[in-house]
């Protein structure tokens, strides 16, 4: 076990739950998810009515394709918008208050400190995500979704959230201003999300590299119900890179031995 991880994690979770930001973020997150779920179901209901006079349309009516996949696609985008709000204070606040030097003088390992904070963000994120489960149960009541697709979609959202959080933690380590941290995280994630669109401009190899870096390439398999080790590993590599980078940034600035 990494020394001090538990203590830092507990402390950060307590801080997170003492702040109104987390609650407001959770409330807005569930409200938007609920709204998207409702509008997807209503649109599907409308198409089902129209399909009674259009046999071509009726063949396309599939709950997984027309409700589940778009719904989880929306959740990932919402996650991309909200994760910066969870990670923005994680190091920035400590730096602003000047407690970060103190933190690194405690008898805890560097990784313990870093991972403790990271897991605190992840637990908060999972806490938010759990509120979408009633919507999935509702989906199961009104129709017969493909539960394999639902399971894989949740794994994808979780992995994407891990990646977003790791990048957010890194951005938070760069500045003591929470707003700057959130903007950096959001802008950076958006860029990484869509960098694959630039592949047309580069040559074949550059195009392939950009396509690999882009998150959209790796999220697709999760949206169609396929678990692909390449995509799982991409997110793990993504997390490892940004967490390691964060550690090096902190080492460089604060750790004096």
């Amino acid at each position: 076990m990494v020394k001090g991880l538990n203590a830092v994690m507990k402390k950060d979770i307590l801080v997170m739950f003492s702040s109104p930001i987390y609650y407001i973020v959770s409330f807005i997150f569930t409200l938007i998810c609920g709204y998207f779920f409702y509008s997807n179901v209503m649109y599907f209901n409308l198409l089902s009515i129209q399909a009674s006079s259009d046999p071509f349309l009726s063949e396309m009516l599939n709950l997984s394709d027309m409700v589940i996949k778009p719904f989880f696609g929306n959740i990932i985008i919402i996650t991309l918008l909200f994760i910066p709000l969870l990670t923005m204070r994680i190091f920035s606040e400590e730096k602003r208050q000047g407690t970060i030097e103190l933190l690194f003088t405690y008898p805890i390992s560097d990784w313990g400190c870093l991972l403790g904070k990271y897991f605190a963000v992840m637990i908060s994120y999972v806490g938010m995500l759990l509120w979408t489960l009633p919507l999935v149960v509702l989906m199961g009541i009104i129709g017969s979704p493909d539960w394999g697709i639902v399971l894989v979609a949740y794994i994808g959202i979780l992995l994407a959230g891990m990646g977003f959080s790791a990048f957010g933690v890194f951005c938070s380590s760069l500045t003591e201003n929470q707003i700057i941290s959130a903007v950096l995280t959001f802008g950076g994630l958006l860029l990484i999300w869509a960098i694959g669109w630039m592949k047309r401009l580069g040559g074949e190899i550059v195009g392939k590299v950009l396509e690999y870096i882009s998150m959209t390439t790796h999220i697709e398999s999760f949206s169609i119900g396929v678990l692909d080790s390449r995509d799982i590993l991409y997110f793990l590599i993504f997390c490892s890179f940004w967490l390691y980078f964060t550690k090096k940034v902190l080492e460089q600035r604060y750790i004096k031995r």
């Binding site: 697709i149 894989v152 692909d228 991409y234």
Partner: peptide, 16 residues
């Protein structure tokens, strides 16, 4: 590791 993962990978189709 990334390059290796592109060469040796597993896919599990969990659709019904």
């Amino acid at each position: 590791v990334g390059l290796l993962s592109l060469r040796h990978y597993t896919r599990i189709d969990l659709t019904e």
